[in-house]
Amino acid sequence: MAEGHKSLNLTLRVWRQANRQAKGEFKVYNVKDISTEASFLEMMDILNEQLINEQVPEGPVAFDHDCREGICGMCSLFINGRAHGPDDDITTCQLHMRKFNDGDTITIEPWRSGGFPIIKDLMVDRTAYDKIMQAGGFVSVSTGGVPDANAIPISKVIADEAMDAAACIGCGACAATCKNGSAMLFVSAKVSQLALLPQGKVEAAKRAKAMVKKMDELGFGNCTNTGACELECPKSVSISHIARLNREFLKANIKD
């Protein structure tokens, strides 16, 4: 370990739930000598090693993770009352233990939203977002040679705005934070990134209607513009995209 690191002794309150139907509860575990340079997920790995060694009846804690570099959107923990933990604009895998103090008690919960049922412990089913994407979050293109990237001129401002929307990794922090369980920030980011660009404009109306319809079918709530989603989004996706989705949806319905 590098110089300057500190070791933390922590108390973890972790949500344990065997499956979707089972009744869950918080279990308290103590972990020792956690380096402040460890990531939060590395700390969870250390906890799981400990639980395996101790042969606790509930086994290791199930939690989602994949790339561990903030781009896949798999990690999803609600840590000390905030999606992705007590830091801004990062995913759980980018959260480091230096954000905590020795002796802290950390409460770790899964996303709690009607759209994301619990699979086990801290893992939730986020396939609802995939279903919304399948409904229209794509551009239909003919097969053939790859066109030149500069064949269609796009202004820097538009390209930047589309890129900001495309930064959404679909982690679900927006719906998990929203008091209405609304997925509007996610849907708006996906609609926006394509509606802004010439390649996506062709199907913009169809896309907005299809994705909103699917979102409603899946039982997500209605956006009341609290802005909590924007503040907890690890990619800082702006709620201005929600206004664009509303515009696209209105336009699409007026054209009918």
């Binding site: 801004d88 919960e109 709690r112 009607g114 934070t177 008091k179 709530g221 609290t226 909590a228």
Partner: peptide, 29 residues
């Protein structure tokens, strides 16, 4: 109607504690 739908969408489970960051207006909630 919207509040009833939103409550249903939120589900029955609640967070043990939820510390929303500063910036979420009291009125909006």
């Amino acid at each position: 109607i919207l509040t009833a739908q939103n409550r249903k969408a939120r589900g029955t489970d609640r967070y043990d504690n939820q510390n929303l960051p500063a910036g979420v207006e009291f009125a909006s909630k």
